[in-house]
Amino acid sequence: MRNTFAQTFYEAAREDPRLCVVVADISPAGAMDKLRTEFPERFINTGVAEQIMIGMCAGMALRGLKPFAYTIATFALFRPFEFVRDDLCYQNLPVTVVGIGGGVTYSTLGATHHAQEDVAIACAVPNLRVIAPCDPAETRAATRWCIAQEQGPVYLRLGKAGEPDLSSGAADPFEFGKLRFLKRGADLCILGYGPALKVALQIAERAQPRGVSASVVSVHTLKPLDEAGIAAVLTSHRRVVVLEEMAPRGGLGDAVKRIAWDSQSRCRIECFSLQDEFIHCYGKHEELLAAHGFSPAAILRKLDM
């Protein structure tokens, strides 16, 4: 996803001289390095200094440039949080904050590198739009949207590297602010975002031979959330499962339950997320997810599949 973002951004930056990237001592993966060589003035490295990364983006946006801030998710959002809130969101500036390694992707690096509450925090701030694409292709579409928009700030939550393609067979194209059906079914609907949607497709596969037809939806835009779309899903399906590699509070699961209550839905809803806990485990990504009870096996077991 990181490389797809870089490639997409690089291609656009060749056309649009206002596009700049401000990083805080993060290595320029893939095409980001080309950008740095070809347009050194538009690749700014503040050093290990995330507050000035955001502050500079604000100033550059105020003077007509289109800056993207780019670093590891915890250092993109948590470290300079008040700068994101006051400088970018309060003043509603068109700056995209790109967080690499959303969730617990950096599994061996410990909680200092785990963006496990980022979506909840980002969604709480007025004006901040939140997008979490599920795979490289969706990253490309989301990045293009961020590049084209001039309205205000965005938090773009990406994975790292090697995410599988999940969306090439999608029923819908990427449309900002709208649910995207990767697969359409009738009985069960799995809602989720980010690379965790891989599990959703596995669930759908398991469901089929049991005569359960499943929809899989990429809720790539967490804010503004497609509430009407979710209400429709709750009407058209008997059972809804929410998957998110994020804290259990303040994310998609809570939002779906709220929408269900408000729309007096009788749909059965089951939510899976990370635990409300710092888990001191330093294994592989899958192992850390398992420690959170968020492994494919654990989810399938709880769903009786």
């Binding site: 290990v48 915890t74 250092f75 470290r79 061996t108 690096l109 410990g110 909680a111 200092t112 590198h113 001191h280 485990c281 330093y282 294994g283 592989k284 192992e287 850390l288 420690a291």
Partner: peptide
Amino acid sequence: YCTAEGILGAHPDRGNPGIEASTGSL
């Protein structure tokens, strides 16, 4: 080191022997 069975990750973690504070964010 850096396995799910162990206690040591790529940054110091308070609670592990000899570690006074969890660091990793500079």
